[in-house]
Write a protein that binds this DNA or RNA. Structure first.
Lengths: 204, 204
DNA sequence: CGTGAGTTTGACCAGTTGGTCAAATCAAAG
DNA sequence: CTTTGATTTGACCAACTGGTCAAACTCACG
């Protein structure tokens, strides 16, 4: 295993290649469905060589997940209490949709985990994510109380945003099959903007 | 394997137990992540005994899927061209939400498959589901053209209904963790009704 | 009871998988 | 060029997995 020093050029390159390959493999077969050999081959390494950089399959997975979660929550963190409520929410929806378009593998990796009961993620969800959600739910509730957006259960509102946006990444196979030639991401931004605008624009 | 006659009492009982157990195991670990032994144990049988009733792990999975798909599409089939548009859609949403509450394992089994690229489902989606979706999208479009509901991309409208309702089953682990003691299904029906009512009620 | 079909199981097998290890190869600093 | 640590690999292992099979057991029915 690499010593406890500054990573060499080769270490950097190979660890990055492994994580990239692992994202590909894990996101399309799940943890249990993926083999170390698959990942190694996808990274252009032999299996023992891969295990020279990571102590185990699970270690690769964990590092991938840790890196993912931060990026994943950023759009929600960016929801600005000082902004115009409706525009903030619409912008959040679009950021999230953009992530589904640009990082579908990350979305599916996450989905895979949650669908299977989030065995490896329960702690992070119960702590970090929970704090963030409570905070932002408060913010939304405040906006509603002030009459700046229509009333709706704030947590369910957040769930619906996650659900609607990630659907395009997680159920990509289904969505694309049913849309034939049309690219789902052509009409999705417009559709979601309309949906949330109609739902949340306060009745004058 | 059982002869090609009417199933005996024991055959009925054991095949049912196996399918029930398989639903449990497959839906929480995916196909690849599940072992025949797990299913057998959950069904109260030995592995060879289980394989006396089904020729292979894949056969169990396929029978499960075949049975599932019909039930799964029923709510959409029930969307009635003769009904009042908005009420029809809202009823569909509630039926779908009810299914997420009553059959979360079925939903997760389906989700597991789609997230991983729908390798075993692509054909059904491209044929049966596609036909149904085209038909119902037409219906929705007709309602919009007649001004009976607001305009929105009909396919994206369907996707959003699936996404929002199934989310409560598929992401159950996350939703429940973030809702603490409150049952998500308490507020969900109201939330979704409000959402689609505000979105689709035609501007007078 | 006896008998034949239906049911169950322990033992087994071959292929796969995560992971190890010693030996070989490579890279770079002196 | 040499040396030393970093990198790579072929061979290997033990555990697991899907599936087989012959032998044993159970059950319904005459």
């Amino acid at each position: 295993m690499p010593a406890d020093r500054a990573p060499t050029r080769i270490q950097k390159k190979n660890r990055a290649a492994i994580l990239e390959a692992a994202l590909d493999v894990f996101s399309s077969h799940g943890f249990r469905g993926s083999t170390v050999d698959q990942i190694a081959k996808a990274a252009g390494l032999s299996k023992p060589n891969l295990l020279y950089y990571f102590p185990s399959k699970e270690a690769i997975f964990n590092e991938l997940m840790a890196g993912l979660l931060d990026t994943w929550l950023d759009p929600l963190r960016a929801l600005d209490p000082e902004g115009e409520p409706l525009e903030e929410i619409l912008a959040y929806v679009q950021r999230k949709l953009q992530m589904s378009r640009d990082f579908p593998r990350e979305s599916r990796l996450y989905a895979n985990e949650i669908v299977q009961g989030a065995p490896r993620l329960h702690d992070v969800i119960a702590s970090d994510l929970n704090v963030l959600v409570e905070e932002k739910a408060q913010l939304l509730q405040g906006w509603m109380d002030a009459g700046r957006i229509n009333r709706a259960h704030p947590k369910h509102l957040l769930f619906s945003i996650w659900s609607l946006t990630q659907h395009y990444a997680d159920f990509d196979a289904q969505v694309r099959t049913l849309m034939r030639d049309e690219d789902p991401f052509d009409a999705a931004p417009q559709y979601l903007e309309t949906l949330y605008r109609r739902m949340l624009t306060p009745k004058t």
